[in-house]
Amino acid sequence: MNTLALEKLQEAIREEGLDGWLFYNFHHRDPLADELLGLSVDSTNSRPWFYMVPERGNPVKLVHAIEASILDSLPGTKVLYSGKDQLNQSLRQFAGKTLAAHRDNNLPVISFLDAGTTENLAHAGIQVVSAASLIQRIKGLLSEEDLESHKRAALGLYEIVEETWQVVSEHFHTNKTLYEGDIQSLILRGMEKRNLFTDHPPIVAAGAHAGDPHYEVSRKGSPVLKGEIIQLDLWARESGQRAIYADISWVGFYGTEIPSPLKAIFQDLVDSRERALDYINENLSRGIRPTGAAVDREVRKLLIARGYEGAIQHRTGHGIDTECHGSGVNIDSIEFPDDRKLLDGACFSIEPGLYFNDYGFRTEIDVYIYQNHAYISGKERQFTLLTP
């Protein structure tokens, strides 16, 4: 870690009004700690270490005597211990301070600090609070370079949807058999052609399978039948350590005459997506930074008012960064309620979904906050169901 990186950590700590950020690891159980501090995951970590970054001044490294060099790449004063009593005594130097750590009652995705260590910190007189907002500021807010990477990935995904649906349409009009796995392969080839990489094959779900939000194709999957809904969900990023994901979902109807009830349901879903976007910009224009939970509540309110409470199975969206489900704000008030604010540089999905026994819909766009306004990445978003 260089001086610039340390200053960035300390600036985030001051922005959140905290005394410091307490990093901890044991057997590399906290990948975020290793990532944020730039530590090798291959180093031997058989004993706990702590790294306390104060809001100002020199950090403190608490390391075991037999692994004394494990934090040598980091600035700060080194304090050695060889037993539990020594470690606890060393931790007492931070008594009375409010320190952020990787634990959060609502966000298990960043909760790596175990309960026993949390108790030991409390006994040392340390007030431990969630580091979720700090993690967002350091990892979940994108630079302009990051945003360009994200936008390129998003543009590629939109193009892949267009190309894929052309092939789907050709199969429909020529009465060729088409399987879910065929569509999935088309999407993966489109990614390969554009040098985009994904951590998991895209979701392609036809008919009743579209009612399963995380349906996975097995082998070729099922044949797509005329009159069925086809749900597409694809995510990918460019190569490189700092490449940023894009993640979109589109819905098609494998037929030429869409039944009126399906049109109506999809329109309600689109309305809820657009309400999320409007709500964010309405608040930002008034100088208010909405939280992820508040945006999710707006979407749910609209869908519940239109009679869909039983068809909602998941949150409205998730943070996006170098991971598809990133460390920034989630648009979530019900699964993992997220009260972090949407700051400039935040990037996230808006993907309301409605699921029934015979079909399901999910429309997903990616949004980023730039200079106090919410923008959509990629090309023109979906307003009507795709048809052949």
Rank of each mutant, 00 (worst) to 15 (best):
M1Q: 10
N2C: 06
L6A: 06
K8D: 11
I13K: 06
E15H: 13
E16M: 06
D19A: 10
D19Y: 05
H28A: 15
R29V: 05
P31E: 04
L32M: 13
E35W: 04
L36D: 04
L37A: 13
S46L: 09
F50L: 12
F50Q: 12
F50S: 07
Y51S: 12
Y51K: 07
P54T: 04
G57C: 09
V63H: 08
V63G: 13
H64P: 13
I66A: 11
I66D: 14
S69T: 12
S73A: 14
S82M: 03
K97H: 11
A100P: 06
A101Q: 06
P108K: 02
D114Y: 02
G116R: 07
N120D: 12
N120T: 14
L121W: 03
H123M: 15
A124P: 09
G125I: 04
V128Q: 07
A131K: 04
S133A: 15
I135Q: 04
I135Y: 00
Q136K: 09
L141S: 04
S143I: 03
L147M: 11
E148P: 00
S149Y: 00
H150P: 01
H150K: 05
A153L: 00
L157N: 02
V168C: 03
I183W: 00
Q184R: 15
S185F: 03
L186R: 03
L188I: 15
G190M: 07
E192L: 06
R194M: 05
L196I: 03
H200Y: 11
H200E: 14
V204P: 00
A205R: 00
G211Q: 02
H214K: 06
K220Q: 15
P223A: 07
V224T: 03
L225F: 13
E228N: 05
E228I: 01
L232V: 08
L234K: 05
W235T: 08
E238T: 02
G240M: 07
G240Q: 08
R242E: 10
I244F: 01
W250P: 01
G255P: 07
S260T: 12
A264K: 15
R275N: 10
Y279N: 13
I280T: 14
N281W: 05
E282A: 12
L284P: 11
P290N: 08
R297E: 15
V299N: 05
L302T: 09
I304R: 11
Y308P: 09
A311N: 14
Q313Y: 07
R315A: 13
G317C: 09
I320S: 01
G328V: 05
V329N: 12
D332W: 02
S333D: 15
F336S: 11
D339G: 09
D344I: 02
C347D: 11
S349N: 11
F356W: 06
D358Q: 12
F361C: 06
R362C: 13
R362D: 12
E364N: 14
E364D: 14
V367C: 12
Y368D: 02
I376Q: 10
S377F: 03
K379C: 10
T384P: 04
T387P: 04
P388T: 00
